[in-house]
């Protein structure tokens, strides 16, 4: 007795994961606010998590779930560091416009 109805095949999950990932990429590329960009990164990570879990269930292997835990841990750490950096950037430059933070140019 499968946990999910048979009407939801693997490809749906992968499709959803791909859509979420593409949304994350698009948000990363086209949004100007750093916080939004940051959220887009989280979205991409979780899109990947989704495909890990889906594969794990489909292949009846636990590796994918372990991987997704790893990704969550890294994402949490990254969120802490990233938010800290964003805060410092705002304090120093009083802007969160991503195009204005280009002191590494050339």
């Amino acid at each position: 007795m499968p946990l999910l109805p048979a009407a939801v095949p693997l490809s749906w999950y992968l499709l959803l994961s791909a859509v979420l990932f593409s949304l994350g990429v698009a948000g990363f590329l086209f949004r100007k606010n750093i916080i939004t960009v940051f959220m887009s990164i989280e979205l991409m990570l979780n899109a990947v998590n989704l495909s890990f879990i889906a594969f794990s269930y489909h292949l009846k292997q636990v590796d994918g779930q372990i991987f997704s835990f790893f990704v969550m841990v890294v994402a949490a750490a990254e969120a802490a560091v990233g938010l800290g950096i964003i805060l410092t950037v705002y304090k120093n430059r009083s802007t969160l416009e991503i195009d204005e933070i280009d002191s590494m140019k050339n």
Binding site: I98, K105, N106
Partner: peptide, 10 residues
């Protein structure tokens, strides 16, 4: 190396 994060990402 434009300094533009979004171009790097692209």
């Amino acid at each position: 190396q434009s300094g533009n994060i979004r171009s790097y990402a692209a």
